[in-house]
Design a binder for these strands. Structure first.
Length: 483
RNA sequence: GGCCCCAUCGUCUAGGGGUCAGGACACCGCCCUUUCAAGGCGGCGACACGGGUUCGAAUCCCGUUGGGGCUACCA
């Protein structure tokens, strides 16, 4: 039977330090924390850094930073698995002494040969394992002969009562005696995980599906070490657009990359939560506390999902539009800095600009770029469009000049600017658009953007006058078209 | 190869024996509108296939196909 989850729970997130936080891992962390938030308990962070060559303090720090950015805080840890190696070795010795593990003196080459043969025959390795008498083993160890310690898997069916998949059973023949201590005496992953989960009192192991096949090993170890079994749950993997495991070839894979692409943490969090879980109704954009309140493990999906960057972008816009500008100011600031606008961050003018443009951007990179028009000195105009505007009104330059004067005479409120332009258009018997479009081009260098009078008002007297005048000169100097 | 998992619109999903198979992203159209967005309204679009079980299967069972995972002295 699938276990029924009751709180409090002790859960953990146990990434290996690879240098970034993978979105799949991030989602696992989110679900784990959500469980604690709805059931009570503790969320533990443990860095699986036993593979020393791949480990590095900075990588660990990066994972923590990324989690903090995402808003996933930890109750206990980070614990470094590498610091617990002596404890793991000790447990291995215990298993060895109890006869639950044994020494294997075969060389890697020999093992490979055995494996090759087993593979060819479609047979599992377990029937091919070779044990030696304990006394002989001792003698050979004393003689300095290298060996590994293998855990003896029970010859019984092992069933994983999986929280998201129901019962998954593994027949006796597939259990292979696996190495728990390498020839150099270092513990392997399976041993370390189980030892740590026991010592840390983990009551539920919620992790990626890639560990499902390893779970029988872990269950056997828990039992051999005399520990009560935690509950298990295995989350489906996240796929790329090519339906393959999400990888760098198909796009961004890490939390840090999305952050750098200008995705708000709230948006990424919300998007990730929905990738494999749903509240059961039609809600999608959900506040944090709403998610916590709605979350339950039995609504976790069991099939892999494709990461959809378009939907993420949509989600991001939702958050950019609905959050107070103040709330995401800390997030935009680095992007403003990147385009040299750092000094304006937090000013009233900048806030107004962000307010005006956030609904028009899919991410903070775009937003920072757009907002530059109010602060920089450079505008570049599109020649083809400019010609088109000029062709609609042969007096355009004069009209823009008149418009500039009327703007200057107004109080620069949105209403006054609006009236100024429309009055002029009416007097000159022009459609408003004939003036509006070139004015937009003059000021922003773009044919699209926020409502014109908001744009002009925010642009300010000085800049408006300058750009209108400069654009007039530009129009006048446009080289004639030669066919 | 062996073992295990998975399978509803292109994508994320709801639905777990009787539904016009619902919602969201994307796409298309219309409305709003000075433009671009946002928003509103509408459209396109799915139960992988084959067998059972049943009065009745998207839903339960088996098989096939497809995808994924594991199969290390990596984690």
């Amino acid at each position: 039977m699938t276990p029924k989850l009751t709180g409090p729970v002790r859960v953990r997130f146990a990434p290996s330090p690879t240098g970034y936080l993978h979105v799949g891992g991030a989602r696992t962390a989110i679900y784990n924390q959500l469980l604690v938030q709805s059931l009570g308990g503790a969320f533990i962070l443990r860095i699986e850094d036993t593979d020393r060559e791949r480990s590095d303090e900075a990588m660990t720090q990066q994972i923590i930073t990324a989690m903090e950015w995402l808003g996933v805080s930890v109750d206990e840890g980070p614990f470094l698995q590498s610091e617990r190696l002596p404890r793991h070795r000790e447990q291995a010795e215990k298993l060895l002494a109890a006869g639950l593990a044994y020494r294997d003196f075969r060389t890697p080459d020999e093992i490979e040969e055995v494996r090759r043969r087993a593979h060819a025959e479609g047979v599992t390795l377990r029937s091919l394992t070779a044990e030696v008498e304990p006394s002989e083993a001792e003698r050979r160890v004393a003689a300095g002969e290298p060996s590994v310690v293998r855990f003896r898997m029970p010859a019984t069916e092992i069933v994983v009562h999986d929280l998201v998949r129901g019962d998954v059973s593994f027949p006796p023949e597939v259990h292979e005696d696996f190495v728990i201590l390498r020839a150099d005496g270092s513990p392997t992953y399976h041993l370390s995980v189980v030892c740590d989960d026991i010592d840390m009192g983990v009551s539920l192991v919620l992790r990626g599906e890639d560990h499902l096949s390893n779970t029988p090993k872990h269950i056997a170890l828990f039992e051999a070490l005399g520990a009560t079994l935690p509950d298990f749950g295995h989350l489906p993997l996240i796929l790329g657009a090519d339906k393959k495991r999400l990888s760098k070839r198909t796009g961004a894979t890490s939390v840090e990359e999305f952050r750098d692409q200008g995705v708000l943490p709230q948006a990424l969090y919300n998007y990730l939560v929905l990738l494999g879980w749903s509240p059961g109704d039609d809600r999608e954009v959900m506040a944090r506390d709403e998610i916590v309140a709605a979350f339950s493990a039995d609504r976790l999906g069991s099939s892999a999902s494709v990461f959809d960057v378009d939907k993420l972008a949509w989600m991001n816009t939702q958050y950019m539009v609905n959050l107070d500008v103040q709330q995401f100011l800390p997030e935009v600031t680095p992007f403003l800095r990147a385009v040299g606008l750092e000094d304006h961050a937090g000013t009233e003018r900048m806030n107004a600009a962000l307010e005006l443009h956030r609904v028009r951007s899919a991410n903070l990179v775009e937003l920072a770029e757009q907002v530059g028009i109010y602060f920089g000195d450079e505008v570049t105009w599109d020649e083809k469009l400019s010609r088109k505007y000029a062709s609609k009104d042969d007096q355009l330059v004069a009209h823009l000049e008149a418009l500039a004067q009327r703007f200057a005479a107004s109080d620069f409120s949105v209403e006054a600017l609006d009236r100024a332009l429309r009055d002029l258009a009416e007097e000159e018997e022009l459609k408003a658009g004939v003036l509006i479009h070139p004015t937009r081009m003059a000021l922003s260098g773009s044919k699209a953007g926020p409502p014109l009078f908001d744009l002009v008002s925010l642009m300010g007297r000085e800049r408006t006058a300058e750009r209108l005048a400069a654009y007039g000169r530009y129009l006048q100097d446009l080289p004639p078209i030669v066919d």
